[in-house]
């Protein structure tokens, strides 16, 4: 798995009522297998809606979602089967915790998948390790944790399901820089361990995208603005501005310095430092 393709997908909330709201319009893209694709866009552009549709929690109002070439909604009864292969971490997933201990809560997903107790234990512990939930936390009640710890526990709950495709909706929103790096880094480490699983990472932080995403999908008001590699997007400040986003400061500086021969679309400070030093040495 899992080649995911959106074909002219449209989605309208509360269709045919006065509260009708068209969240996605004629959206088409394909997620490249084995890559981290970032989904970026301004608040309310429909990012979370894409995640929900991808997991088969709602049915697109128009168009199709193909997974491995098969329509997700071909047999509505089978959607649950496909959902088991996709791990979706919701935006602010803390509220989904409910068990007595964090360990049991992380085990909820794998248990629903019908894994054996031994497998569950291994899955829970390895998932907890990747996102930095220590042994002491595992024994605690999820309601005694801090916000950031709860977020980690919730993400571990999805990683433990060992999904073939991982969808993360703003996994680091509202965390301190260290927490952001820990969580995103942990997810990437997990992905590498699992032979480069496909990941869809939703965020509006271009800094995070610079570090973690291979490809980017840029949405604007429910429509596709651009789909390409992260580098390509970082070379197009006009596009990023149109989407209501901002490039990282370092990219803006180096893009302005392109007269000095620094290539456009620098993503990180380290990369910028190398390029600038090269110019200074010569």
């Amino acid at each position: 798995m899992s080649v995911v393709t959106f074909e002219h997908v449209g989605y309208t909330y509360s269709a045919k009522t006065p509260f009708e709201h068209e969240a996605l319009k004629d959206l088409s893209f394909t997620l490249q297998e084995g890559r981290v694709t970032g989904l970026v866009g301004h608040t309310g552009c429909g990012k979370s809606t894409v995640a929900m549709l991808l997991d088969g929690l709602e049915r697109p109002t128009s168009g199709r979602i193909l997974i491995d070439g098969r329509d997700l909604w071909e047999e509505p009864k089978k959607v649950r089967e496909i959902r088991r292969r996709i791990g979706l971490v919701f935006q602010y997933p803390e509220y989904q915790l409910f068990e007595e201990t964090v360990e049991k809560d992380i085990a909820f997903g794998p248990r629903n998948l019908g894994k054996s107790e031994d497998e569950i234990r291994t899955l829970v512990h390895s998932a907890a390790q990747f996102v930095g939930v220590g042994e002491d936390l595992l024994k605690k009640s999820p309601f005694e944790l801090s916000g950031g710890e709860r977020r980690r526990a919730a993400i571990a709950g999805v990683l433990a399901m060992d999904p073939e495709l991982l969808v993360l909706d703003e996994p680091a929103a509202g965390l301190d820089p260290r927490g952001r790096a820990d969580i995103l880094g942990g997810v990437c480490a997990y992905r590498r361990e699992k032979q480069n699983r496909t990941v869809l990472l939703i965020s509006h932080s271009m800094e995070d995208m610079a570090r973690f995403a291979d490809d980017l999908i840029v949405l604007k008001e429910g429509e596709l603005l651009f789909h390409g590699t992260t580098k390509e997007v970082f070379c197009r400040p006009d596009l990023v501005r149109e989407a209501g986003l901002a490039l990282p400061q370092i990219t803006r500086i180096t893009n302005a310095l392109c007269d000095l021969g620094i290539p456009e679309g620098i993503t990180t400070t380290e990369e910028a430092a190398i390029e600038i030093l090269k110019r200074l040495d010569s």
Binding site: F90, P93, F108, G109, M161
Partner: peptide, 8 residues
Amino acid sequence: NAQKARGA
């Protein structure tokens, strides 16, 4: 939805 996504 969140619990369904976890296989409930």
